[in-house]
């Protein structure tokens, strides 16, 4: 047996798993759901973009995804910047503290907001104790709750992506800009931000893709009032058993994620050449 054929054999089991566990079923969703023809799926897909109910869900999913992406960048970039530029020995601990939530179950992390935002929760009880409101404010099952939950889930990803990019920008460049008379703010916006832009694009892509496909957060914190594409997909496939609608929702979700990732990859390449 030649060396090359040995290596090809080594690939076979992995490719088999990919084919059966991922590629073939994923193609099946597009074209041949049980009890729904390709035409059913595509006419349902067209309907999703005309029906006001479906449009509201798509709009909410994309809208909340954008808000969460912006929030994660606004909070995550400064954290990454401070950590990457700090010489304090606490920086390592704080970096670990930012990464640790990535290991922790989404269900556990999201459940925390039920305790914080629930009607008997910390914020409600505090605002009553301080005399701000007479009854606990409705915080759960609102878009605010979803935004908080998703930001908590994806902020670590934004921090990691920004941190990697910022630590590749030499700290000496900051000093050079400062030495040439640029202020702290100007150095930040004219040197640090542009040079770490590829990392920012990666962070934005990861956060957006995660937000528009997340299930646990809208399920626990949005309830039946704040439905999103992910909760719709589950209810079509396992509650109402509407295969055409489930496939159509899956297609919308996939296209959304692939489109944004593709766009980001192009942006990243452009950023690298200029």
């Amino acid at each position: 047996m030649t060396r090359r054929s040995t290596f090809v054999l080594l690939l076979v089991p992995g490719l088999l798993f990919l084919l059966l566990g991922f590629i073939l079923p994923a193609l099946g969703v597009l074209f041949a759901a049980p009890g729904a023809t390709t035409e059913d799926i595509f006419s349902r897909l067209v309907q999703m973009f005309t029906d006001p109910y479906d449009l509201r869900i798509i709009g909410r999913t994309v809208g909340l995804g954008l808000v969460v992406t912006a929030l994660c960048l606004v909070l995550g970039f400064p954290i990454a910047y401070l950590l990457a530029r700090s010489e304090s020995r606490w920086a390592g601990v704080l970096l670990a503290l930012a990464i640790f939530p990535l290991l922790l179950s989404n269900v556990v992390r999201t459940f925390g907001w039920l305790v914080v935002l629930g009607s008997n929760g910390a914020i409600g009880q505090l605002s009553m104790a301080l005399g701000l409101t007479d009854s606990p404010p409705q915080l759960l099952y609102t878009s605010f709750a979803i935004i908080m939950g998703l930001t908590q889930l994806f902020l670590p990803l934004a921090i990691v992506a920004c941190y990697s990019a910022i630590s590749q920008v030499e700290a000496g460049l900051d000093d050079a800009a400062r030495g040439l008379g640029a202020g702290r703010t100007r150095t930040f916006w004219d040197v640090v931000v542009p040079l770490s832009l590829p990392g920012v694009v990666v962070a934005a892509t990861l956060v957006f893709a995660g937000s528009v496909t997340a299930y646990t957060t809208p399920y626990l914190l949005g309830g039946s009032r704040q439905r999103m594409l992910a909760t719709e997909l589950y209810s079509y496939s396992s509650v109402t058993i509407d295969w055409a609608a489930a496939s159509a929702t899956a297609i919308v979700m996939t296209v959304l994620v692939v489109l944004v990732s593709g766009l980001a990859a192009r942006l990243g390449r452009k950023g690298a050449t200029t």
Binding site: F22, A26, V29, Y215, A246, A250, M253, T254, V257
Partner: peptide, 8 residues
């Protein structure tokens, strides 16, 4: 998206 793989 993992949900799509799950559905598939």
């Amino acid at each position: 998206p993992e949900l799509v793989v799950g559905l598939a």
